[in-house]
Design a protein around this nucleic acid. Sequence first.
DNA 1: TGAATGGTTTGACGTTGGTCAAACCATAGA
DNA 2: TCTATGGTTTGACCAACGTCAAACCATTCA
Lengths: 108, 108
Amino acid sequence: MGDEGEWLPQPEIEDIELVKVLHALGDPVRLWLLKVYAGGEAFSCAPDALGIGHLHKSTVSHHMRIMREAGITSTRAVGRNRYVQLRRDDLDARFPGLLDALLESLPY
Amino acid sequence: MGDEGEWLPQPEIEDIELVKVLHALGDPVRLWLLKVYAGGEAFSCAPDALGIGHLHKSTVSHHMRIMREAGITSTRAVGRNRYVQLRRDDLDARFPGLLDALLESLPY
DNA sequence: TGAATGGTTTGACGTTGGTCAAACCATAGA
DNA sequence: TCTATGGTTTGACCAACGTCAAACCATTCA
């Protein structure tokens, strides 16, 4: 009760590397997740809830870890849930204009 | 003589896919090449001339092909030389602001 | 306390990817 | 014409990657 949850490990702002961010986003599933998280904080990792119901939950967990370790997302663990959000401010500070350009360029 | 050379195969503007561009740039060597080509047209594929003298020339050829097929560069073959340049206008038209943001964010 | 639930981790499997070396191709130059 | 040269292609090798399944862990709730 009253517990805000724990933050899962993520790189410091200055340790976010462009090549890792690009590598992380150079995958169709993770590029899709970028769009999902851009729409607001997600509180479930369930494949169906994320629009990737065709993938196994462990695969989704894998993709979310890669995005978090690349510095794209931050995750707070509260109970059995995971609150995932884009690190908008950090990405904007580190790579000005990049995130906006990416979101503007997303397909669909 | 007077031969302008032949253009190597490359995708049409509308066929350039964001995920392929990001995947292509999610590699340290190709991210380095992006910076090189951003500095102006390159007329040699020699590893030394491109600042990647530690790599075999066939490896460089491989990376250049991936960048071209992703739609990042265009290549004109004139004699034994290859004139490689960034597809600035095409990339700007397809993904507004992305290239500028990337070039601003490059390390070094 | 016991069962169900949301996520993570591990292991396995097939695919893709980066690298080198050698063969190859076409052009330039003697 | 012969040789050297700039680049490409092919094959091989090993590492990295995406995926699933099963085991696992912690939390929730009956």
